[in-house]
């Protein structure tokens, strides 16, 4: 059953993104920023954790989940290190995803070439 909810919630979050693209003039970059910041806010309000527990990857794979990850990381770091944790928590939690993208980017830039998409 948790596969079904992951699919449904993940798909629904993407539809929200699609509605923002089609119905507003927001560029992709703005939508991504909006999703991440909203993720932080929803997590701070305590609303995202129940969703993540319920829908699993359906809530954590979309970029809202990235915001949730940052917010959780910062909370854990503040608990351990006090105010300093507000600075270190976000990057620590996000390090895996960002570093993986960065490494993949460097490897891809060496291995692949820009191709005409037409």
């Amino acid at each position: 059953m948790h596969y079904f909810w992951a699919f449904l919630v993940g798909g629904a979050l993407c539809v929200i993104g699609q509605l923002l693209i089609d119905l507003t003039n927001l560029t992709p970059a703005r939508i991504l920023v909006l999703f991440v910041v909203s993720g932080v806010a929803l997590s701070a309000l305590g609303w995202y954790r129940p969703l993540a527990e319920f829908a699993g990857a359906g809530a954590t794979v979309p970029l809202l989940g990235f915001g949730h990850l940052l917010a959780q990381g910062v909370v854990a770091a503040v608990e351990r290190h006090g105010l300093l944790g507000a600075l270190t928590g976000g990057f620590s939690a996000a390090a895996g995803g960002i570093a993986a993208s960065l490494v993949c980017g460097v490897i891809a830039s060496l291995a692949a070439r820009s191709k005409d998409q037409s």
């Binding site: 992951a6 699919f7 449904l8 993940g10 539809v15 699609q18 699993g56 990857a57």
Partner: peptide
């Protein structure tokens, strides 16, 4: 399209 492709990526993540 957004729903099915986005949902499928999340489904893969759950797997």
């Amino acid at each position: 399209w957004a729903f099915f492709v986005g949902g499928s990526i999340c489904l893969l993540g759950e797997g």
